[in-house]
Amino acid sequence: MSEPLLEVRNLRVSFRTRTGTVTAVDGISFTVDPGEVVGLVGESGSGKSVSMLTVLRLIDNPNCVIEGEVLFKGNDLLTMSDADLRSIRGREIAMIFQDPMTALTPVYTAGWHISEQIRAHEKVSKKAANDRAIQLLTSVGIPNAESRVNSYPHEFSGGMRQRVVIAMALSCNPSLLIADEPTTALDVTIQAQILELLRDLQSEFGASIVLITHDMGVVSQMANRVMVMYGGRLVEAGSRLDVMREPAHPYTWGLMGSIPPTDGTRAVRLAAIPGAPISPSDSDRDRCLFAPRCTFATDSCRPQPGLIEHRPGHSDACIIPFSERAQRRTEALAPMRART
């Protein structure tokens, strides 16, 4: 087994607010291996962004309390010096954010943004950095890169801007790319193009990707491995095939019900998971947080069930005996598919 590229151990992030402490990330642990694409899924507010922002210490909120360890190539990013962290940010770990419209500083050109990043990490001339910017823009599929390198953000469409951001993220050949809902702000055709671009670049550059999304469809296209988050905890993790074919956690069943099946049994309406997502300020955390919305919940959903590896490489946090899962899953998914 090779050493993992990124190893997160028992990461916990909470915010002190006027109304009490909010736990955004509640003790998650996972690893990302070199060259793999990990999909991180979950509803809005489940702590996906916060957990990945914490990896690069990008939350600059004085009321934020972070515990745990984030080991990148063996070094803890949470305790390392600012200077060391800076040399990892952008060079070893790059990030792409959800909204390409606001991710670029409006007063600088695309080339300036890319050169800034290159020159932050390498001693190269402006000219050389600009030439590399042109190459990168070409490789992310921007036509006329020689002239577009001098365009300002407002002169690009949303999809093109996201390509510029991707070019910037790849400019120092990072070994890990964190993409936080890179396609959510784009329309459907552009979404597909950007995902395809990411997939091509991944096979070309060989970087690992953590792809944050709330769209199971995106995960099934892109990821080797899937992690499902709910209420700041991981509730299921496994290879894409395992999680997509035989999801083990009732919350994942709910998420699966919300994507259109591709096997012919077209659902007319996509099912939503009933009930409201758990609020991160909920103080009653010593239980399965999904229990209030779960059809199979019993009294034994407390205390909090741990993440258990029932099969090699596929773990989940649910008290339903593993042998009964297949049947329960059919029960859970049947009404959703039947509404045709």
Binding site: R89, P106, Q117, H121
Partner: peptide, 26 residues
């Protein structure tokens, strides 16, 4: 608090440059 400042930090830009070249400039 804008995204582009968070982006600049994620790029590995120093805090001084983020302050002057990004926040002050805009």
């Amino acid at each position: 608090n804008e995204d582009y400042v968070r982006m600049a930090r994620a790029k590995g830009i120093g805090e001084g440059r983020v302050l002057i070249r990004h926040a002050l400039r805009t």
